[in-house]
Design a protein around this nucleic acid. Structure first.
Lengths: 418, 418
DNA sequence: CTGGATTCGTTTAATCTGAGAACCAATCGT
DNA sequence: ACGATTGGTTCTCAGATTAAACGAATCCAG
């Protein structure tokens, strides 16, 4: 904790793919890199000892020892129990220190605001879900600010050092700039949401960033994980629209954004050339087959009604079954196309539609499983996980992005500490 | 050039996404990183001065000076002309030194072998195209070895230090292992092609690697470029089958491979659920609509005939026009789906089918242009370039991968030099 | 033409980081 | 209880970068 005082809430729009033309650096940079490596190793494999780290990071015991000591002093790590020994001095387990810092994550969705405060290891300290009908960005920002202030004041959060805030938004983000280009379901366009939020949250320190909701979710699902970490992961968010986010790279997870922030807009990949008109103006988009609004359209459910709540009691109606089956089949095609285009190590399926369960999901998973191995002829299955309750997934993912931007990025929060 | 003698041809299967759990290192590592950065900057912007490099890489003049000196001595860089000054001592331009090294690239295609030898900046010194009907991996390897030996002995190549060989193959590569999992059009499966090649090329030093043809091509198109370098690039290879490769990341270009090496197999994304049967067993794959074999099937052209040569004189036949128009429309959908799923900064279209020209391409480009801005409503066009003669693109790309693996990777070729 | 200003590149001493080896600490097996 | 083994720390040393001063090469103004 540097004595010079508080860190300014220096906004950092999003985890850019690259900070500099090419990475180069001085001794300080090297030191920081090694501290990051230590922190990252412990983050992935809680309970590592200094000796383990030295082996895995290819550093000497001396270097690791010094690095761990500073990370302990800074409150990033804590020492745990002694490990079992097998004929030697037992090592001391190291863990992330979940007691000193707090990460804030929020999601602005079509149906409301979701907020979480969590620890370094992704443990949620407090969360809040506020229903809200779509309104202006300004009103939304003011409300979100108020709710976040409440969260900051809550018992489990107060007193912790804030590392920053991540905001997940339902639309593509401009690359390199903290601008939400479009949120069709909110009726927003070109919104600098963080700028709107800042006046209401002058006390929230640390790194601020915003990202697309599916991308944040994907990031969180990969990042807040320990043990065997997949090389890449795609999160498919099936709600009012359908989008996806991909994270790649085991040692510095990167989110694929694309030139215009459109990467992952799989809802507008065409599955049926010449098919139904989509709200985007094209025909045959995936969203015309599988999405909240296509299901509403097929079943004549008004926007005011909650789609899931309306459908759950009616799952046995034949029209509902047929509609969901068709949507599920399209979802299966979407998943398969994702598999052949990106081939992620893991697919996570979330969004409000997953609550509809079997009638929608069974056809999708069946199609995917039946066809995913056609090409190679193997029997290897891509892990595909369905999250029934994905309420806080994106918000938590945005918090994960804050942490990653501090550990891996150019933030001062770590740098200044060492 | 280290005095201790020749470098062993230590095979390195492919540019892995990550070499280590997390990057850490010592002073040597830092030095190497900075040398890489210098080399990379000059590679991108030929003619930079030491002062420019210091500014861009955030290094001091002293460090850059020392680094440049060693790179000059090693033959990686050369000094050029004095730059124009504006009221001060003029800087000396730096360029890649194209005179000392050579990179070998090869492509094993359905219709033959393509070989190139090129310089650090991607300039082709010699190339060779050998027609060959598909045969066994062993025979192919032997022939390729012989041809490469001829290339090595050629006037412009002899005497240069070999940095290695990259081989592009028409199928998915296993991740982390130098194994061609499948090449349907060659009838190959699980081939360790480099192992077959090695006995015939004991004299070819440096890094050996292999990769998928479209991925190599994508890499080369991004890497052997100067000036404004796109953040990401997708190469679509339209030939007998249809595949793609994506490269991302401006400061260390990475190829998306996927868990099973399937990333980019867009020929098997489904564009028409319930459509025609594909050779993979599924229905409605893109390849059933746009690919060499789907066009052959539609027009009844035997495998023995050269597709492009057969069609070129018949482009005005109505059945040919209709077939190519349909294929082109499907290609347009494929490009649009790529745009919405990955949103690359640039798309390059190559492969033998591009030689068919307008009748195929016009519908594809028209569809793509008409729909690429539906979502955002902007008028920004994704740069889309068609390569008419893509004969050596993949081979040259494989050579580029060799260079990149040496500059950015853990190779000794740079490390030992400093 | 000369001198000052400016920019480029190199040289010097100083600083800082990780490596390496010796050292102490703690446990296990016998 | 003792050696063997493994974990972690403390030294010194090699090395890479830095900062600051210096020399080099050009422009420009008078």
């Amino acid at each position: 904790m540097p004595a010079q005082g508080t860190h300014s809430a220096r906004p950092c729009h999003s985890m850019s793919t690259s900070f500099q033309p090419h990475k180069a650096g001085d001794l300080h940079f090297l030191k920081r890199l090694n501290r990051s490596a230590i922190l990252e190793l412990v983050r992935r494999t809680p309970g590592l000892t200094r000796a383990d780290i030295a082996t895995q990071a290819q550093l000497t015991k001396a270097t690791v020892g010094a690095g761990v000591q500073s990370l302990l002093q800074q409150g990033w790590l804590r020492e745990g129990e002694l490990q079992k020994s097998s004929g030697g001095r037992p090592g001391r387990a190291l863990h992330l220190n979940d007691d000193n810092h707090v990460l804030f994550g929020a999601e602005v969705g079509v149906h409301g605001l979701r907020l979480v405060a969590c620890t370094l290891s992704g443990q949620v300290l407090v969360s809040h879900h506020e229903h809200l009908v779509p309104t202006t960005p300004e009103v939304t920002a003011e409300l979100l600010g108020e709710l976040l202030r409440t969260l900051m004041a809550s018992r489990h959060v107060a007193g912790r050092q804030s590392l920053g805030l991540g905001v997940a938004l339902p639309g593509p983000i401009a690359p390199g700039k903290p601008v939400l280009r479009l949120a069709p379901n909110l009726g927003w366009r070109d919104i600098r949401f963080l700028d709107l939020l800042r006046p209401h949250l002058t006390l929230l320190e640390g790194t601020w960033l915003m990202d697309n909701e599916a991308k944040s979710a994907a990031f969180g699902e990969l990042y807040f994980r320990t043990g065997q970490i997949p090389e890449s992961l795609v999160y498919v968010s099936a709600g009012t629209g359908i989008g996806s986010g991909m994270v790649e790279g085991s040692h510095l997870p990167l989110v694929t954004r694309g030139m215009q922030g459109l990467a992952g807009e799989i809802g507008h990949t065409v599955l049926q050339p010449g098919g139904l008109y989509c709200h985007c103006g094209n025909r045959g988009c995936a969203e015309t087959l599988v999405s909240g609004w296509s299901i509403r359209a097929a079943l004549g459910i008004a926007e005011e009604e909650d789609l899931v709540a309306t459908l759950l009691p009616r799952l046995n109606d034949s029209d509902v079954q047929v509609t969901l089956r068709r949507a599920g089949e399209a979802l299966g095609v979407l998943l398969l196309n994702l598999h052949h285009a990106q081939n992620p190590s893991e697919i996570v399926l979330g969004g409000s539609l997953t609550q509809l369960g079997e009638p929608l999901l069974e056809p999708a998973l069946a199609y995917f499983k039946a066809n995913q191995n056609r090409l190679l002829g193997t029997s290897q299955q891509v892990p595909l996980r369905v999250i029934e309750d994905s309420t806080f997934v994106a918000a938590r993912g945005a918090a994960a992005q804050v942490l990653a931007s501090i550990i891996h990025g150019p933030s001062d929060l770590l740098q200044a500490s060492f």
